[in-house]
């Protein structure tokens, strides 16, 4: 068993489905570079026409929020219920709004 070089870098794969939705994360794969990552993603993640567009991003380039910050990041939204339309009572007579 040879172990000449280090392994190919990890790429995260994002695919836009057929129906005009945003690109969605589908998984990851290893490839020597971005170009090959796209070719490999075609074979690994779109064997059944799952997509019309592929993005690849080297995993080491992704910055992510950490689970510990969940509170401080999202709590400020909790006391602003007026951002949701259901906060306001509109009389039935007004019709659809």
């Amino acid at each position: 068993m040879t172990n000449a070089t280090q392994e190919w870098p990890l790429f995260e794969i994002f695919i836009r489905g057929q129906h005009g939705l945003s690109h969605r994360h589908v998984g990851s794969l290893h490839a020597p570079d971005a170009e090959m990552a796209i070719k490999n993603a075609r074979d690994v993640y779109t064997r059944r026409n799952e997509g019309v567009s592929i993005w690849v991003v080297q995993a080491s380039d992704i910055a992510a929020s950490s689970p510990e910050e969940k509170g401080s990041l999202y709590e400020p939204a909790n006391d602003k219920v007026y951002r949701h339309p259901t906060f306001f009572d509109i009389p039935d007579e007004v019709g659809a709004m």
């Binding site: 070089t5 020597p32 570079d33």
Partner: peptide, 12 residues
């Protein structure tokens, strides 16, 4: 497959 893996790395 080692030469393919290494070759593609070198090319990249």
């Amino acid at each position: 497959g080692a030469w393919v893996r290494d070759g593609l790395m070198a090319h990249a």
